[in-house]
């Protein structure tokens, strides 16, 4: 498996009130062609920033992003604009992602117009094809405005727009967290189906481990801008090495009253990313933390085959 996307030592910094906020600190990841990499973490952990930094929508302050052998971090202007067509993005809020004053047909055709497909007939044919692929009836849908549709239908439209140019990599940023449970399953199944049909590579960003597990081959866990753990999905669920991964797993509410909720989960909340703890950023909530964790930033190292964790005292 060759890496389609490789992220090396990526750092994204914001200036917040004169202070530097490291939204993403020194993250390295690879996504193989045809693979789905799940990226998990709580709000403020930098997972969405990472997604946008890959597309250069937010310029990284350090590190490199290489897509299919081209270094995106070095591209500019026209070259970057052309490259972006091979990478697409799907957002959390499907309704806000659609221009409220343009018709669905217009919105889905927009990528074709931008890439210079002049022939109206061809545009319409391709719009109809992709709408059918995402399970919408083109005749009923094309002339309408976004507000006439439910969240789930809007997400289908967003997926259609992202797929019409047949991209290679799609970054899904919390694509189902704004949707109801029954609709969520439809969209997850649709993404899986689209992945197969269009031969996509997915970077799937979400806060819900169960949702990520349903679609991912490998999972990366982030906490306060840093990578905690990366590994094959089933292995990571069966034997989490990082205490934070274990905490996330325990915190998932299980729809079964015979499973009592885990008591006394790690107290506290993630500290402010403006003022992260020294050493390991999870140490303030970690039951295993000691002086080493405060002094030394743990490096990502291989715990088991293909499973990497950044922890001085890994579990298991």
């Amino acid at each position: 498996m060759t890496a389609l996307l490789s992220i090396e030592n990526l750092t994204v910094e914001y200036a917040v009130g004169g202070k530097a906020l490291f939204a993403v600190s020194d993250v390295s990841l690879e996504v193989g062609r045809g693979e789905t990499l799940g990226l998990v973490g709580e709000s403020g952990c930098g997972k969405s920033t990472l997604g946008r930094a890959v597309l250069q929508l937010r310029r990284p302050t350090g590190g490199r992003v290489t897509f299919d052998g081209t270094e995106l971090t070095r591209l500019d202007g026209e070259a970057l604009r052309l490259m972006r067509r091979r990478l697409q993005l799907i957002f959390q809020d499907p309704i806000a992602s659609l221009n409220p004053r343009r018709s669905i047909g217009d919105i889905v055709a927009e990528p074709l117009v931008i890439t210079g497909v002049v022939d109206r007939g061809e545009r319409e044919r391709r719009v109809r094809d992709v709408l059918a692929a995402v399970g919408l009836d083109a005749d009923l849908v094309m002339g309408r405005l976004p507000h006439e549709f439910s969240g789930g239908q809007c997400q289908r439209i967003c997926i259609a727009r992202a797929l019409i140019l047949e991209p290679e990599l799609v970054i899904c940023d919390e694509p189902v967290s704004a949707l109801d449970v029954s609709i969520r399953a439809q969209i997850l199944n649709l993404l899986e189906d689209m992945k197969r049909r269009y031969g996509l590579t997915l970077l799937f960003i979400a806060h819900d481990l169960a949702v990520v597990k349903a679609v991912s081959d490998r999972i990366a866990v982030m906490y306060l801008g840093r990578l905690c753990e990366v590994g094959p999905t089933e292995q990571l669920f069966a034997r989490p090495a990082h205490p934070y991964t274990a905490l996330l797993l325990e915190a998932i509410p299980v729809p079964d009253p015979t499973v009592k909720p885990a008591a006394n989960l790690a107290a506290g909340e993630p500290p402010s990313p403006l003022d992260p703890p020294s050493g390991c950023r999870f140490r303030t909530r970690c039951p295993r933390a000691d002086q080493t964790c405060a002094d030394v930033v743990p490096e990502l190292r291989e715990i088991a085959v293909g499973q990497f964790a950044a922890c001085h005292h890994p579990l298991g």
């Binding site: 597309l55 929508l57 604009r81 490259m83 697409q88 993005l89 806000a96 992602s97 221009n99 931008i114």
Partner: peptide
């Protein structure tokens, strides 16, 4: 708003985003 970010992600020019979106 996401629909403007989406247009940027599609590689739309500034002029197009300003005029169409």
């Amino acid at each position: 708003r996401e629909f403007v970010v989406a247009a940027r992600a599609l590689g739309a020019t500034h002029a197009r985003i300003l005029l169409r979106e």
